[in-house]
Design a binder for these strands. Structure first.
Lengths: 225, 225
DNA sequence: GTCAACTAGTATACTAGTATAATAATTTTA
DNA sequence: TAAAATTATTATACTAGTATACTAGTTGAC
C-alpha cells in the first residue's frame, strides 16, 4: 500500500479517500482483494470512521464492493462497467463540446489556447505530470465554459474505471497526438463548428486504448467476467 | 419533518438517507435551512453517524451544503444546477434511447409494452403512486436494456434538483400526455428508428415544467440567485 | 453421507464520548 | 468609539467501544 502524507487543511476523510483511490487505480490494491477498515486506519494513522466514509464513497461508483459486516472488496475489473464509463464520457463530452461552440467567449478561447501552449511546452520538456494535469485542465475547461461542472465531476468519478485498466495497458498513446487533438478541437470551437468539434472529440476519446486481451492473459484473476 | 419507519433489512444509514432526501425534495425541509446531525438523529431515533453519512452522500450532489464544524444547510434552489440536471438527463436519455433502437431484443420490447399497458391501467384507475412508479420503471428499463445502469443511477441522483422545484410547480403535466409520449418512444424503438426516438424523448423530457417565475414570487428566499 | 441447527470467530454498523474548529459574544486597547 | 484580542459557545470531525450480523466450521439427526 502506497501511503502519502495528509495535506494541510485536508480532512482525514478526504485524505483517506485520496489514498484509497490512488491505490486502487494504480492497482497497488489488486482487483478482488479484501480491504479492512481497521488495517487501513492503522496504516494511515487515523480512526476507522474516516476510512469507512471513504470506502462508502468509493462504493457509490462501484470501485469498492461493501460486503455488510464482512469487509470491503476492491472491485474486479468489469469490462461492461469500463465500457459504460467510456460511453458516459463520450456522450457527455460530445454534448459539451457542441455547446462550447456556441457558448465560448473570446476570453474562454484565449484561456483554452493558453492551456494548449503550456501543454506544448511541457511536452517538449518531458514533464509528464504537468502534461497530464494540463490535459485534465483542457477537458475541465470545456465543462466550465458551459457551466456544467457537476457533469464534469461525474465524468471524472466514473473515469476511475478506465484509468485503472489504462494503467495496466502496454501501448500508450503518444502525447503528441493528444496535443494535436486538443488543437483540432480548439479550432473547431473557434470556428463555431459543432459537427467538426464532435468529430474531433470522438476521435480524441477513441484513443483511450485498453489492451484488454493482453492484460487478461497476464492477470486473468483481475477480471469479473 | 416527515418521519417514516425504517424498512425491514434497511440499514440505518439508508434509512436516514431516504428520510432526508424525501424531506428535501418535498421542501418539507425548506431550501436554506440549517440541519443538525444531533436533532435529526434524535428525531429518527438513531445515532449521529448514520445521519452524518447520509448528509455526506447528499452533499455529493449538492443537495446539502456542509459547513465544516458548523452544520449542514439544505441547498438553495440553484437554477443553474437545475438546468444542468435537465441537460444531463436529456443528453443521457437521448443517447440511451438511440442505443435502445439497436439493442432492444424482442423480449425487451414486450417488457416495455407490459409497462405501458399497466400504466394505462393505473391511469384510468387514478392510482398516482403506482403510475409514477411505472413512469420511473419505463425510463429505468431503457437504461437497463443498454446495460447502462450506473448512468441511470447518476441521472436519478441529479434528478433530485428538478424533482424539488417541480414539487413546487403549479401547472402539472397531464399524465395522459406522458403515457402517450411513452407509447411514441416505444414505437420508435420498435421501428428501430433512432431519429424518431430522439425526437420523441426530447419532446417527452421538455415537458418537465418548472414554473420558476411564479415560485420565485411566492418563495424568493428559496433561490440562490 | 447429507443437511440443518448451532456455535465460534470476526469485521462491520452503530453508539457515544472527546477534541477541534468555526462563530459569536465579550473584553481590552488605542 | 471602533478595531483587535480574548473567551465562550456550539456543532462537527474524529476516536474508540459495543452490538450485530455474516461466515465457516462443527455437531447431530435422519
Amino acid at each position: 500500500m502506497k501511503i502519502f502524507e495528509p495535506e494541510r487543511g485536508e480532512s482525514l476523510r478526504m485524505y483517506s479517500l485520496r489514498v484509497l483511490r490512488e491505490n486502487i487505480i494504480t492497482t497497488e490494491f489488486e482487483p478482488g482483494v479484501m480491504l479492512y477498515e481497521k488495517e487501513i486506519a492503522t496504516a494511515l494513522n487515523v480512526s476507522r470512521s474516516p476510512v469507512r466514509e471513504a470506502l462508502a464513497e468509493l462504493s457509490q461508483f462501484q470501485l469498492i464492493e461493501i460486503l455488510p459486516q464482512r469487509g470491503s472488496r476492491v472491485a474486479l475489473i468489469d469490462m461492461d462497467l469500463v465500457n459504460e464509463a467510456v460511453f458516459f464520457r463520450t456522450t457527455m463530452e460530445v454534448a459539451i463540446v457542441k455547446l462550447t461552440c456556441t457558448m465560448a467567449s473570446e476570453k474562454d478561447l484565449s484561456d483554452l489556447e493558453e492551456i494548449l501552449k503550456l501543454q506544448e511546452f511541457y511536452l517538449q520538456n518531458f514533464s509528464k505530470d504537468k502534461f497530464m494535469e494540463l490535459d485534465n485542465q483542457f477537458h475541465y475547461s470545456l465543462f466550465k465554459i458551459c457551466n456544467k461542472l457537476q457533469c464534469y465531476n461525474m465524468v471524472s468519478k466514473m473515469g476511475a474505471h478506465f484509468d485503472r485498466i489504462r494503467n495496466l495497458s502496454l501501448h500508450v498513446v503518444k502525447d503528441l497526438k493528444l496535443v494535436q487533438d486538443h488543437r483540432d478541437i480548439f479550432h473547431a470551437i473557434k470556428d463555431r463548428d459543432p459537427k467538426k468539434a464532435e468529430e474531433m472529440i470522438r476521435k480524441h476519446l477513441s484513443r483511450i486504448q485498453l489492451d484488454e486481451k493482453e492484460i487478461r492473459k497476464t492477470y486473468p484473476q483481475y477480471f469479473k467476467n
